[in-house]
């Protein structure tokens, strides 16, 4: 075949938490490694690295995705939001506060993924039902909490945010 087709390195421009980054990346670089290794945003965690556990969840153009199962080039010209983008002027997001108040974490390793899945849900659905919350979190795994306190945290944050927008 014509060996000139394609390239092992790709130019990308990606907006992460509002900041534009222009980089040349290896085609095989995964989005999670672009975030953690290249951009130094280590809030996004690698858990299973097999698209199962959801610890690496970030938002790509507002949609939750597993950043271990996306190449960095797939974020070209896209808007990425990571857990570092949740707080505002040093003040934690209501979801983060609710996770603290409801004891929605123990070791905390899975928490960034849960926060981003919850954030994706509440961005689209201001008044989710209990069932919708559970379904939105179904792609995230936690080995400490037994999930009940995570559910309570998201329920609490959703109610707080909905009350504020009435």
């Amino acid at each position: 075949m014509n060996m000139s087709v394609g390239s092992e390195r790709v130019q990308i421009r990606v907006t992460v938490n509002g900041q534009v980054h222009q980089r040349e990346v290896e085609a095989r670089q995964l989005l999670v490694d672009l975030l953690r290794e290249t951009l130094g945003l280590t809030g996004t965690h690698i858990g299973c690295d097999t698209s199962y556990c959801g610890a690496c969840t970030v938002l790509l153009n507002g949609e939750p995705v597993k950043s271990c199962t996306l190449f960095a080039f797939q974020a070209h010209e896209a808007d990425v939001k990571t857990v570092e983008g949740l707080s505002h002027n040093g003040d934690m997001h209501p979801l983060q506060k609710a996770f603290v108040q409801c004891h929605g974490l123990q070791c905390g390793y899975c928490t960034p993924g849960f926060l981003m899945s919850s954030y994706a849900l509440l961005s689209k659905n201001k008044r989710p039902t209990d069932d919708q919350i559970r379904k939105a979190l179904a792609g995230n795994t936690c080995r400490c909490t037994g999930y009940q306190n995570i559910f309570k945290a998201v329920r609490s944050a959703a109610d707080t945010l909905a009350a504020g927008t009435q």
């Binding site: 394609g6 390239s7 092992e8 790709v10 085609a27 095989r28 995964l30 690295d49 097999t50």
Partner: peptide, 9 residues
């Protein structure tokens, strides 16, 4: 885990 290197088009 990293995939083997590949060319992208």
């Amino acid at each position: 885990m990293y995939p083997a290197a590949f060319r992208y088009y």
